[in-house]
Computed example of a mutant assay.
Amino acid sequence: MKRFASLIVLISLLVGFESYAQKNEMDVEAAKAYNEGNSLLKAGNYEGAVKQYDIALKTSTDYRIYYQKGIALKKQGKLQEAEAAFKSAIQSNPNFDISYNGLGGVYFEEGKYLDAADAFKKFGELTKNKTMKDKANEYVARSLAKLAEEEKSDGKLDKALEHLNEAIKYYSLDAAYITLAMIEIDNGNFQKAIDATDAVIAMKNSSLKGAAYYYRGLAYKKLNDSAKARENFELAKKDPQYKKLSDYELNNMK
C-alpha cells in the first residue's frame, strides 16, 4: 500500500506556457519577468523563477503568473506557499482548470486528501481535454483511497467504505479494491471481499495481484473453502511481499 508515496509525481502537471504573454494581457515589465521566470523554471532554477514571478506580480495579478509560481514553489517543497499561489491563481481566474490540478497535488502531498479530491473533481469538471479528465478522475480516486486508508486505521470503517466506493466510481483503482477487500473481511462480508479482489486480478497491469490473491485466500478460508484458500495463498506467495504471510496461512492449514 506504500505505492502512493511515489504517485504524487503524476499529480504535478507542469504546463509550460510556450507562447509569450501579449502586451495587452500583461504590462511590458510583468511580461518580461514572467517569461524569464518560465525560462528559469524549465532550466530547474526554481528559486530564481519564483523571484521573477514575484517581480511580475508587482504590476500584474495575471492568473498564469500565480500558477507558474505555484509550480516552482511546489518543486522546492514549499507546499504552503505553493497552496497560496494556486489559490491566488484560482481567485484571479476561477475557470483556469489546471490551477485546481496544481492545488490538488499540493493538498495530496500535505495529506489533505478530502481537499485534494475536491480540487481534482473541479479540475475534471472544467477541463475539456479527455486525457486530463481521465487523469482527474484517477487523482480523485487516489485521494479518496488514501483518505479511506486513514479512516480504516482510525477504526472508521463505514466512512472508509463510503470513500472507497466513491473512489471506484471515478476510477477502477486496484489499491482501493484491496482496502475494500480488507474491510469487507473484517466486516464478515466475505463474498464482497472476493468480488473486490477479483476486480484486481482481472486488471492487466496491476502490481497488487499478490495482495489480491492473499486477501481472496483469507476470504475463502473464512468461508471454510480450504481448497480455494490454499490455491490463492499459493498464488499470493509468488509475490515476495506476501510470501511469509501466505506460508504462515498454508502451514496452519496442514
Rank of each mutant, 00 (worst) to 15 (best):
K23F: 04
K121T: 13
I178G: 04
M253D: 15
L208E: 08
L126T: 01
G217E: 06
M1N: 12
D195M: 05
K244Y: 11
E231H: 04
Q191P: 09
K146C: 08
M26D: 00
A141D: 08
E109C: 06
V15S: 08
L126C: 01
L144C: 07
D195Y: 06
V15M: 07
A236H: 08
A43W: 00
N93G: 01
K238V: 03
G188N: 05
V50Y: 05
K23L: 08
L79R: 07
K128M: 11
K58T: 13
Y248S: 13
A141E: 04
S39H: 01
N45Y: 04
Y139F: 15
K237Y: 08
E149M: 06
G48C: 08
N251Q: 12
G124D: 00
S12I: 12
D62K: 11
Y34C: 01
A84Q: 14
K237Q: 15
F120E: 02
L73P: 01
Q80F: 05
A43K: 12
Y46A: 06
S172G: 03
L14Q: 09
K204Y: 09
G124F: 01
F17I: 15
L208K: 12
A211Q: 00
A167W: 00
D239F: 01
I178E: 06
I65S: 00
T127S: 14
K222V: 06
A119F: 05
R142M: 15
G104C: 08
Y63I: 02
K146M: 14
K159W: 00
A212Q: 05
Y139S: 07
L250A: 13
T179F: 03
K87G: 07
E234I: 14
V15T: 10
R216V: 02
Y171D: 14
L180I: 00
K74I: 00
E18I: 11
N35D: 14
A219G: 07
T197G: 05
R230N: 09
I8N: 03
A56H: 02
V200E: 00
Q52G: 03
E162V: 01
N101G: 09
K243R: 14
S99A: 15
L114Y: 11
D225E: 13
E149G: 02
I178M: 10
A31G: 12
E29P: 05
N24E: 15
G111V: 12
N205I: 02
L14N: 10
K135L: 09
K58W: 02
A85Y: 05
I98Q: 10
K51C: 02
L40N: 04
K221S: 15
Q68D: 12
K209M: 06
A72P: 07
K192R: 07
D54R: 12
D225C: 09
I183S: 05
R230G: 10
K135G: 03
